[in-house]
Design a protein around this nucleic acid. Structure first.
Lengths: 339, 339
DNA sequence: GTGAAAGCGCTAACAG
DNA sequence: CTGTTAGCGCTTTCAC
C-alpha cells in the first residue's frame, strides 16, 4: 500500500526511476536516450523498450537547465495599433511554429512596438529562449540592436543593411520593380505609388523598386504622385484624392492594408478598376482575396518565410554556419485589376 | 588577470555569486528576492541594492525546475486551412500575451486542427507549460477532452456544455438574438442565416439566438433560408443564390469571413445593400472594416477575451478558485447595411 | 561499455 | 533572522 505502482499517482516518471527499475545508472539511461557516448546495443534496446512501454517523456526543462538551453525560440510580433490584425505576422508565426515543432523546439511569443521593446527585454532577461525571430525590420531597429548587443542568436524576417544580421526575405525591390514594369508595359503612363511607413525597411525597398522600373524602362517618374508614410485612413484618403486629381492611370499599393483602403475610396468615388485606373498591390491576403475585380498582387508566402526563419535560427543555435541572406521566392498573380 | 570582474564574461551572475559576494547564504538571497520567509529589512535592502547594481536577473528556468513550474502558458491556435488568417485568434493571442507578461508568465504557442492534436500533446508531454488557453470550442472537442484527462489547468475561449470547463466567452446566443430582432424590427420579413461549421460551438449558439429572436417576437421562421456549415466559397455562393432566389430581405452572417464573401457575391449580382437586402455580421474585423456601405456587426473584443483568459488561467495555476463562466461584453455597431 | 559524482540555478524543509 | 542540506531531472566529466 506504499509505493507499489507509483505510476498511477501524479509524479512523472524520471530517468532515475528507469535506472532503478532496470538496475542501471542514470548515466546509462541518459545515454540510451540521447544516443551520445558509447552504449551496448542491447542495453539501449532494453531502455528504449521500457521507455516506450511506460510512455516516458524526458523533462525538457531539466535537460535544458543542465545544458543551459531552453529549447524555445522567441517570435516577436509587432503590437503597433494598426498592425495587430495583419495576417502576414500570424502566418509567419505559424510557419516558425511548424519549423520549431519539427526540430523539437517550442515557440514563445511576445510583442514590441516601434519604440518600446520592454517585453522583448523581459523575455531575454528571463532567459526563456535560445534565440529570436524578428518578424519585421525597421530602419532604426531597436529590437535588432538590442539583440545584437546581448549576443543572443536571432534572425530577421525582412531586410537590413546590417550585414551581420541574418535575414530571411523575399526580394521586395525586384518584386515592386517587376510590378511597376508590368503596369508601364500595359500602357499606364502615370503610375502612382502609395506606400506605408518608411521606417519599415520593406516599404523603402518597394519604393526603390518602383523607381528602378522607371529607370530601367527609361521613363519619367512623377514625384507628385508618390505618397509615402501613408499609414492611416486619413492620409490614404488624401493621397487617393491627389492621385485622382493628378490624373494617374495606375496605383501601386505597398501593402494589402493600404490597397483595401484605396479600393474602398475608389468605389465611393465611382472610379472603375481597371477601366479608369489600374491597381496592383503587395501580399495577397484575405484582405484582398474577395475583391471584385480581383487584384493583381505580389504573392508572398509568409508561412514559408516563417518556416525558413525557424529552421535557420535553430540551425544557428545548434552552431551551424548560416548564410547571411535567404531569399524566398515571390510570385506575381496577374488579375483583372491591371488588365 | 583571473576572475577579476567576471561580469564582462559570458556567464550570467547567479544567486550563488551574490551570496559569496555579500557573505550570505544562497537561501538568504533567495528570500530577499522572493520575499518569502523572514529576513531583516537591512539584509534585504543590501541584497536588493546589489541586485539592482549588478542587474541580476533570476533564472526562471531553474526556479521553475525547483518548483515544478514553468511560468509558461500555452495558447492553442487553430491551424485548419481556412482559419489561419482569422484575426480573431491573433487578437486573442495578443491578449493572453499581455495578461501573461503582467503576471510574469510567458506564452508558448502551438496549433491544432479539428482532428489532429499531436502538437498539443507534444507541448504537454514536454512539460513546457503550466496551463493552456484554448481559443475555440468544438462540439466534439479533442483538445478539451485531452487536457481534462491530463488534469492540467486550462481555460476555453468559447463555450462548452461541459460544466467542468472554465469558459471565457461573450454571449453569442443573446448577441445573435438581438441582431436578428433588430432586423425584424426594421421591417425585414424574410431574414436568412448563413452560418459556418456547426461543429464550432459558437456557430451553434448563433443559430440558437437566431431562432430565439423569432420565437420571442412570435414571428415565423423559414428554414429554407437557413444555411449551416457554409465554410467555403462554393457553399457560400450556393447559399447566396438560394437566398436571393427565395426573396430574402435580410442576411445574417455568422462571421466576418462569411460576410465578406457574401458581400462580394451581392456586389457581383448588383444587389444593393441595404436597399435590396440588409446585411449584418459577427465580429467586426479588418475584413469588414473598409466595406462600403459599412456593415452592422456584433463587436467582440477578442483581445479582451484573451486578457481575461490569461488572467483566469494564471489564477487557476496559482490555486485560486475561478468561476466557471466569465462573460465578456459585446456591442452592436449599427451601420448603414441595416438602415 | 557503464557508473559515481558533481553540477545547472534555484527553492524548501529543517535547524539553530 | 540566517544557514545547512537536500533536492528538482537531467547532463557531463572522469574513472573503472
Amino acid at each position: 500500500m506504499k509505493d507499489i505502482n507509483k505510476q498511477t499517482t501524479s509524479r512523472n516518471i524520471t530517468i532515475g526511476d528507469i535506472a532503478k527499475e532496470l538496475g542501471l545508472s542514470k548515466t546509462t539511461i541518459s545515454r540510451a536516450i540521447s544516443g551520445k557516448g558509447r552504449i551496448s546495443a542491447e542495453t539501449k534496446r532494453k531502455v528504449q523498450e521500457y521507455i516506450q512501454l511506460h510512455n516516458y517523456k524526458p523533462n525538457v526543462i531539466a535537460k535544458g537547465l543542465a545544458q543551459s538551453r531552453t529549447y524555445n525560440v522567441g517570435v516577436i510580433l509587432p503590437a503597433d495599433a494598426n498592425l495587430v490584425e495583419v495576417p502576414f505576422f500570424q502566418s509567419c508565426l505559424l510557419g516558425v511554429c511548424e519549423a520549431a515543432a519539427g526540430l523539437d523546439y517550442d515557440v514563445v511569443v511576445t510583442t514590441v512596438t516601434e519604440d518600446d521593446i520592454t517585453l522583448l527585454k523581459r523575455l531575454i532577461d528571463n532567459q526563456k529562449v535560445d534565440g529570436v525571430v524578428l518578424t519585421r525590420s525597421l530602419v532604426n531597429d531597436l529590437p535588432a540592436a538590442y539583440l545584437k548587443e546581448t549576443g543572443i542568436p536571432f534572425v530577421l524576417i525582412g531586410s537590413s543593411e546590417d550585414e551581420e544580421v541574418i535575414q530571411i526575405d523575399s526580394n521586395h525591390t525586384a518584386g515592386c520593380c517587376e510590378l511597376t514594369a508590368i503596369l508601364l508595359k500595359s500602357g499606364c503612363n502615370r503610375i502612382a505609388l502609395l506606400a506605408g511607413n518608411q521606417n519599415f525597411v520593406v516599404n523603402r525597398s518597394r519604393y526603390e523598386g518602383y523607381r528602378k522600373a522607371f529607370r530601367d524602362m527609361e521613363q519619367d517618374m512623377d514625384n507628385e504622385i508618390v505618397f509615402l508614410d501613408r499609414n492611416n485612413n486619413v492620409l490614404i484618403q488624401q493621397a487617393v484624392n491627389a492621385i485622382l486629381a493628378k490624373g494617374a492611370d495606375g496605383i501601386i499599393c505597398s501593402d494589402d492594408f493600404i490597397c483595401s483602403k484605396v479600393l474602398t475610396q475608389l468605389e465611393e468615388r465611382n472610379v472603375a478598376v481597371p477601366d479608369m485606373v489600374k491597381v496592383a498591390s503587395f501580399y495577397n491576403s484575405s484582405l484582398l482575396e474577395n475583391h471584385n475585380p480581383p487584384i493583381t498582387a505580389i504573392q508572398i508566402n509568409a508561412k514559408d518565410l516563417g518556416i525558413t526563419a525557424g529552421k535557420k535560427l535553430i540551425g544557428m543555435i545548434s552552431g551551424e554556419k548560416i548564410e547571411q541572406k535567404s531569399l524566398v521566392d515571390y510570385e506575381i498573380a496577374l488579375k483583372k485589376s491591371t488588365s
